[in-house]
Each structure stands twice: as C-alpha cells, then as structure tokens.
Amino acid sequence: MENHAKLAAHDMNLFFGEKQILKNINIDFPEKEVTSLIGPSGCGKSTLLRSFNRMHDLTPEAKIQGKLTIDDQDIYHPSQPLTQLRKRIGMVFQKPNPLPKSIFDNLAYALKIHKYPKSEMEDLVENALKESYLWDEVKDDLKKPATKLSGGQQQRLCIARTVILRPEVILMDEPCSALDPISTHKIEDLILKLRSDYTIVIVTHNMQQAQRISDKVAFMYLGELIEYDTTDVIFNNAKKELTRNYISGHFG
C-alpha cells in the first residue's frame, strides 16, 4: 500500500523569462517517505523543489503554469497564506545558512516569528536539537554564535530550525554537498530518522546517498521528469535507457 500523495505537481511548466526550465512535470511525493530528485546539473531539480515552498515568488521573471498541491490544496492559490505554507513546508539549503545569532536564538527566532509562547521555547529548542543529533555537542554553549559551529553542525542546526516548527514536509536542496563525509553520514542518519515523521524530498548529486536514504527516486533531465519509481527499480531495473546511463555514470 502506497501512502497518500502529500505533495504533487500536475502538468507543471516553469519559465524564467523566455526560457522554459521545467516541462510538463507530473509527480507526487508520498507522505512520510523520502524521495530523491536526481539528474545532471541544470536539469531543474532544485527549481522544482523550490517551487513547492514558493521560493520563486521573489523572482519576478519566474512564471509557473499548472498546479502544485499539498494535501490537494493549491499551493499557489491566492488565498493560500504564504507564511503558514512555508511553516508547513520547511526547507534546508545547500549551504548551511544559520542566522547571525546565537545557537539558541537561531531556533528561538523561528518560534518567535510564529508566536509560540516564551515559556515553551527552552523545551522546544532542546527537543529540536536532540532530534537533529546536535544537543550533546552544543548543550553547554547555546549562547555561542551559530556561525562558529563547523559546517556539518551548522547544517544540523538548520535542520533543527526547520523541524522545530513541526512542518509536514521538509525540502532539502543538496544538504550535504558542502560537507565532509563524516558530517554527511550524520545528516543521512538524521534523514532516515526524520522519515517516520515527515515527508522528505531531497535533491542530491550523490548516487550512493540516493540509494541509501530514499524510498523513491525521480530522475530528471533537461527540465523533464524522465523516470520515477522505487529506489530499487531505478537503480537496478530502470526502464529508460537514459536513466540507466546516468546511474551508471555514462554522463552527467
């Protein structure tokens, strides 16, 4: 039994000015599973990912056709409250981007914005840090500037900052590409743990990573969705030759 589709795109086209970046995308991401988006650089994976939490809104030349949904609600409907939507669909970026504040305040800020009561903050921060396997490393200096953490710790802090708001979906845009193998391993462990509570969509260039962490894999090429299936099928029994070639490293 497949879980119900949490996020979906129907007949979606995306243009930057005259240039078409995404072509007729139809895809749905099942609830509480990890889906990897793979494909060569410039194929539109990140662009697709960023469409779901409307990060293109600030780019005036970006135009989106078709329909994107979360729980069958139209993400781009004018009545959709943008800040609430982004609370429901969290995002972790390629480069760790902690705010220029202390470790504690990085997390507390997210709570403050969404008007959580002050009395709950300390507990929620502690929980989020534990949830992202960071608590033991930072519990004694929560007042330290977040920028003083290592890259891997910063990225786990960014994940903590996302999960502290209890989103329904977490979008991850190559979260490990700026990290060393040990930090990458920790993040992958974390993703596998988060899988039971969140719907996760992750863009990755790392084939082993996609195999290790994902339930389903979508292969994209030149703005089109070429093949979308379970991880096992994509890596061992892909139907399209293009997919097989990419997986085996013949191009990309």
Binding site: N97, P98, P100
Partner: peptide, 25 residues
C-alpha cells in the same frame, strides 16, 4: 541571498526578514 532565504523559508514575511536579518547584518 541565502541569508534572506533562510528566514523566508521559515515563514517570515519579507518585512520581518529585512528587520531581523538583513538590516542588522
């Protein structure tokens, strides 16, 4: 821009992003 995206993705409004992150920085 990654700084602005960080707070926007948390559900901050553009004004909150400017007031709390961009201008202080």
């Amino acid at each position: 821009n990654s700084m602005r995206e960080a707070t926007l993705a948390l559900g901050c409004t553009q004004f909150e992003t400017i007031r709390d992150v961009v201008v202080p920085k």
